Computed example of a mutant assay.
Amino acid sequence: MAESRPRTVDLAGETIEYEVRHSSRATRSRLSVDTSGVTVVVPEGASVRPAALLRDHAEWVVEHARKAAARRERLPERRFEPGATFPFLGEPHEVVVERRSYSVVGDETLRLASHHVADTSVKRALETLYRRRARDRFERLADEYAAAMGVDYDRIEVRNQRTKWGSCSTSGTISLNWRLQLAPPEIGEYVVVHEVAHRRELNHSPAFWDLVGEHDPAYERHRAWLADNGLQLIFSEEDL
């Protein structure tokens, strides 16, 4: 998908910055407005006037651009350097870089192996640590709840989905977002319960929610927490 430099257009009295992306997979032109900005996606080779398309949907674009701007203000500031603070299971932890064999989570610290940081970066070393701890925890929880529900699953995949916290395929692969390790422990546990429950009910029927509620009586509160606070689990701009 080819990208263009940012452009501007006046819509409903506001100057909106936007980008045009040409896509070989797109079958028609479409507009996208999210925390990363306003984008006009155009099929490869199509003759489209992006500014005209934006003006045709001016009110919609401006309304969603304002909402996206408000969401951006809520994004956490991340500094990928020693002394910075990152949440781990909902609690602030300070980043420490030191000589050690491998990175670990300590008491209120994320202790990174200096050789890993030198070979990659603080950011990459942090993500590796989060992912490793996520896999250990997700597999343990999935085994526990699968046994309690009388179901099985094929495997756990630790991923970084932009718009999903978890998913369950018909083949039994459960995918879970490693950024749940930034959230309070009950939030990630709710997502595991949710996805394991899909091994019995591959839908969102009343029977499915009854099963989730049986193993997480506070699931409605946990689901609401994710809806209200999901932006706080953004690790870097690449997640947007």
Rank of each mutant, 00 (worst) to 15 (best):
E3K: 14
S175F: 07
F86Y: 12
V105M: 08
V196L: 10
L211T: 05
H93N: 13
S4P: 01
V41A: 01
S32T: 10
L89W: 05
A146E: 01
G37D: 08
S114H: 10
H215L: 06
V122R: 08
M1A: 15
A142E: 01
G150M: 05
D152V: 09
L231P: 08
L233Q: 02
R133T: 06
R5M: 13
I156Y: 01
R55C: 06
I187C: 00
S23L: 12
L31F: 08
E63G: 07
L31C: 07
T39L: 15
R5Y: 09
P82W: 06
A118K: 15
E77L: 13
G188M: 02
V192P: 00
L54Y: 02
V38Q: 06
D154L: 14
E77Y: 10
A12L: 13
V212K: 03
E17I: 12
Q181V: 07
E238A: 13
V41W: 04
V9L: 04
I16D: 09
Y18H: 15
P217W: 11
A118G: 08
G90I: 00
A51T: 04
Y190H: 02
S205F: 08
E63M: 05
E81Y: 09
W165N: 01
E94R: 15
A125D: 02
F86D: 08
F80G: 06
V33C: 07
V38A: 11
D56A: 14
W225S: 10
L126G: 08
T128I: 05
L226I: 01
E238M: 04
V191P: 00
P76G: 06
